[in-house]
């Protein structure tokens, strides 16, 4: 089985489209959906934190949202 591409895999400046959420954590999925992540949304990795490339500032449509690496790992994307 090939690992699905997640927001964590995108490089700085790279853009992707949200395809879904990793299925193992329903609470996290709801948190992510509530702040606005949804299938079909455009995401772009803008900046990384100074320690271990986390947190990540992500452009979600026209909003910038800070997510931690483990949260980014729950967002499945396809490269735009």
């Amino acid at each position: 089985m090939t690992e699905k591409l997640t927001l964590r895999n995108l490089k700085r400046g790279e853009t992707g489209i949200v395809t879904g959420f990793v299925k193992n954590d329903a609470i996290r999925e709801e948190e992510l959906r509530e702040i606005g992540f949804a299938e079909g949304d455009e995401v772009q990795v803008l900046e990384y934190g100074s320690f271990g490339r986390t947190p990540i500032s992500v452009r979600l449509n026209r909003t910038i949202i800070a997510v931690r690496a483990n949260e980014a790992q729950s967002i499945e994307v396809s490269r735009a």
């Binding site: 996290r28 948190e31 947190p55 500032s57 949202i65 800070a66 997510v67 949260e71």
Partner: peptide, 8 residues
């Protein structure tokens, strides 16, 4: 608690 914070 997740970070999930808007950067205005």
């Amino acid at each position: 608690q997740p970070l999930l914070m808007e950067l205005p």
